[in-house]
């Protein structure tokens, strides 16, 4: 479980996070949603340690991540996997080398077992054998995301973080990526945190959803519950498009 307590963060005069509290459950897909500028990327980066919050705490299964010395943080980082918005694959490496990268650094497995782990991870995200020797720049956006997921799960992490994993993908591929994230979360019992503004993802995989607005948490619940929420902030965020207006009309 990931527990966030009173996280605040400012950049200059601009206060981006204004005291966020939330609990993200293990074995579930926890979605952070909100419009652009609501603070969800800064919140995710604060949780993974890419941004240092001004105050507040992040507890990873009871361990105080924010107050931890750097040496201990390094060890704990091996329990984390992250999928970035633009995949952030190492463009000078092949598909296989990208997945091998964290294993070469942090795993003491013998070569045969490393190879088996790489094959398992790539197979699990349905990357064909023919793509292993390809440079990642040669892959489509959807395949790059899948390789990024394979790299993120290579060290069998406890926590999986995804920053807008559907960004730039067509609706069909988005659903495939969403389902993959959900399957892996269930299969490996990870605490998964997904940053998104895609309402389809919310309904597809949102076990637990947190809505941010102007740096505040304004709503928390499950994916399906969001359609019944009466909170004005939720209504303003979710029922903007014609499709969701019709969904709301049908529901009421």
């Amino acid at each position: 479980m990931i527990e966030v307590r009173g996280i605040k963060k400012s950049f200059g005069d601009q206060e981006v996070l204004k005291g966020i509290d939330m609990q993200l459950q293990r074995g579930q897909c926890n979605l952070i949603i909100g419009s652009s500028g609501s603070g969800k990327t800064v919140l995710l980066k604060s949780i993974v340690g890419l941004v240092k919050p001004d105050s507040g705490q992040v507890l990873l299964d009871g361990r105080d991540w924010t107050g931890m010395p750097e040496r201990e943080r390094k060890v704990l980082r091996q329990e984390m996997g992250m999928v970035f918005q633009a995949s952030a694959l190492f463009t000078s490496l092949t598909v296989e080398e990208n997945v091998r990268f964290p294993l070469d650094f942090f795993s003491s497995l013998p070569l045969t077992e490393k190879n088996a782990r790489i094959a398992f991870c790539l197979d699990r995200v349905r990357i064909p054998q023919s793509a292993l020797r390809k440079n990642v720049a040669e892959l489509s956006g959807g395949m790059q995301k899948r390789v990024a997921i394979a790299r993120a799960i290579a060290l069998n992490p406890k926590y999986l973080f995804c920053d807008e994993p559907n960004s730039g993908l067509d609706p069909e591929t988005s659903v495939v990526i969403d389902q993959l994230i959900q399957e892996l979360t269930r299969e490996f019992g990870m605490t998964t945190v997904v940053n998104t503004h895609d309402m389809n993802s919310v309904l597809e995989i949102g076990d637990h959803v947190v809505l941010l607005r102007h740096g505040y948490k304004v709503w928390e619940g499950s994916g399906p519950e969001i359609l019944k929420a009466t909170n004005q902030e939720v209504v303003d965020y979710v029922f903007v498009s014609a499709l969701f207006k019709r969904v709301r009309a049908a529901l009421t």
Binding site: L50, R73, R77, Q78, M82, A88, L89, T91, F106
Partner: peptide, 12 residues
Amino acid sequence: TEQMDALQVMGI
């Protein structure tokens, strides 16, 4: 392209 962030998250 966030490749440096990816390294940092890995603990490198």
